[in-house]
Design a protein around this nucleic acid. Sequence first.
DNA 1: AGTGAAATAGGCAGAGC
DNA 2: GCTCTGCCTATTTCACT
Lengths: 155, 155
Amino acid sequence: MNIPALDETDKGILNLLQKDAHLTIDQLAKQLKKSKTPIFQRIKRLKEQGYIKAFVALLDQQKISPLFIAFPHIHLTSHSEAVLRQFQDQVSQFPEVMECYHLTGDVDFMLKIVLPDMQAYNNFLREKLASLPNIGNVHSYLVLSQAKHDTALIL
Amino acid sequence: MNIPALDETDKGILNLLQKDAHLTIDQLAKQLKKSKTPIFQRIKRLKEQGYIKAFVALLDQQKISPLFIAFPHIHLTSHSEAVLRQFQDQVSQFPEVMECYHLTGDVDFMLKIVLPDMQAYNNFLREKLASLPNIGNVHSYLVLSQAKHDTALIL
DNA sequence: AGTGAAATAGGCAGAGC
DNA sequence: GCTCTGCCTATTTCACT
């Protein structure tokens, strides 16, 4: 499948939709100086080709219920490709793991864990994370407050 | 302003919308065993009261252009409330700062920085971050790959 | 707070440039 | 690949329980 590069109109659509997905095709068409049909067809194409992964609602999590956020840094005891891949796959299964990054340098992985409270986080570390193979040292960074959380990238 | 707690129907709406914001009111109504009007009214209320912050499109960023992600840990040289607040406010202005967390323990802040490449990140550190007052030590964790990135919370 | 129906606006497809 | 026309489905409001 040959996927062509994005032109300025495509980027314009993505830029606007990642800030507000409820813009109508009419509104997008006006801002991008096109009529409805090409905008509609481009959005359809951008979805099919996977540039747009999903349309979601962003919630004010702290307002709904107080949450505890932690970023554990994890050292593995082996660094073979098989071990790294297995760790990623297994840890991604846990629903409390929101994000998983493979890092350079003196740490192997960083996770973002979101749970109701510190007790639940303690349970996660002891019962779920510690049960995985090849886990070495774990150092947890705990979040006191969150000052910014954007999802929109500049294209 | 008195904001009442969320009932099960509200939580159901939020749970579904944070996974797929393009569900129609009809579809939500069926799944939650209500008719269209109450679902519509509740969504409107949840937006007005700020439980829903935004509806956005999530993009496959790596597919659109290769990106460089880093998590700098930042120590400040002073920890007065004024300094902490000033740091948060100033750093949140930078568009490349996607997230900003105030942490416990041996680090003060962690940022998530997204930029086109490592060169741009180097410039960010030298020209933008270093120009802020009260910056002490900065230790950067660089991302090799990202295995998971969810936004939906379990309510 | 809920249902059901009626009005309006937006998504989506076709013909032609 | 774009504009224009038009249908059809979803959103939004209203009268009522």
